[in-house]
């Protein structure tokens, strides 16, 4: 492998990693703070892509599609929390798996009923549709650089918000001790709705960012859900910076694994990596609780 190709593949790996981070940020947030395994995260990701594609197609504005998709998925998330999922915070992980598994089926079927089975069109605005020459002989798709930027900004914002602001303090307080947090005047209920809506919005954001690169179709959430779960667990459940590190690591391992290994091994290299890491660090790379 020549040096320019190596650099390009490294960039590809990092970029894939950042995309994986976008997909897993919301999952790890909800998982870590509310102790809820939300398998329907992939369904929210799918809805984000479908809504953004529809609005962008009708209005001609990618940005409007993006905003509507993020707001809509946040609203759907809040609704889900209030109507259904808040009853499951104190239930077993298995009950959570069961109810969110049911949600996947419902969301997939409803999406198919509304939008049909044919994959959707999701075109990029011309400004970011092409590629630019990063260095001589290497063109890189502009939109992938946009994903890179958005992912890093989201990571930074989440980190600052949780670690440095009052809202973040409430969130951390509510997560570690509900009763105590209520006693000192934190409205835990509202905080949890907010966190869940934020997690859903992050899923929607990931979906609309991935939409122009991937096929926008029913069931697109499940393969991504698996990858997001892998990243979440390797990083340590609930750890935002863990998710970022794990995502980039997985992005690089996957990219180079596919290029250098046999196809059979290339397909399982992510899972091999996860098994090795968990065997070595049973609570992930950045364990949050003890």
């Amino acid at each position: 492998m020549s040096l320019p190709l190596f650099l390009e593949q490294t960039l590809n790996g990092v970029q894939l990693g950042v995309m994986l981070f976008l997909m897993s940020a919301g999952l790890t947030l909800v998982f870590g703070i509310m102790n809820l395994i939300n398998l329907a995260h992939g369904a929210l990701y799918m809805l984000g892509a479908f809504i953004a594609a529809t609005v962008a197609d009708k209005s001609g504005s990618f940005l409007l599609g993006a905003v509507v998709a993020v707001v809509a998925t946040a609203a759907i998330g809040a609704l889900l929390e209030v109507a259904l999922l808040r009853r499951f915070y104190h239930r077993s992980h298995l009950d959570q798996v069961l109810v969110t598994f049911g949600l996947i089926l419902v969301f997939n079927q409803v999406t198919q009923l509304i939008w049909g089975a044919v994959p959707m069109r999701f075109n990029l605005p011309d400004a970011v549709a092409g590629s630019i020459e990063l260095f001589p002989g290497m063109n890189y798709p502009v939109f992938r650089l946009v994903i890179l930027g958005v992912g890093l900004v989201v990571g930074l914002l989440l980190y600052v918000m949780i670690m440095r602001t009052r809202i973040g303090m409430w969130v951390r307080a509510g997560a570690s001790n509900r009763a105590m947090a209520s006693a000192i005047g934190v409205n835990v209920e509202m905080v949890f709705i907010g966190v869940f809506a934020a997690g859903a919005a992050l899923a929607g954001l990931a979906g609309l960012m991935a939409g122009p690169i991937l096929a926008v179709q029913v069931g697109m959430g499940e393969p991504v859900l698996i990858l997001a779960l892998v990243v979440t667990v390797i990083g340590g459940i609930g750890s935002i910076n863990g998710a970022l590190v794990a995502a980039i690591m997985i992005g690089l391992i996957d990219t180079f694994g596919r290029v250098l290994l046999s196809p059979a091994l290339g397909s399982m290299v992510i899972f091999l990596a996860m098994a090795v890491i968990l065997a070595w660090k049973p609570k992930g790379l950045f364990p949050v609780h003890g």
């Binding site: 998982f31 395994i37 992980h93 698996i226 779960l229 892998v230 667990v233 459940i237 059979a264 397909s267 399982m268 899972f271 091999l272 996860m274 098994a275 968990l278 065997a279 049973p282 609570k283 992930g284």
Partner: peptide, 23 residues
């Protein structure tokens, strides 16, 4: 060696490895 959600995921990883082995 793992527990809880980590156990779920590591068994998932092994399941995928068996799956790709079959393929």
């Amino acid at each position: 060696r793992t527990n809880g959600a980590y156990f779920i995921m590591i068994t998932l990883a092994f399941n995928q490895m068996l799956y790709y082995l079959g393929v």
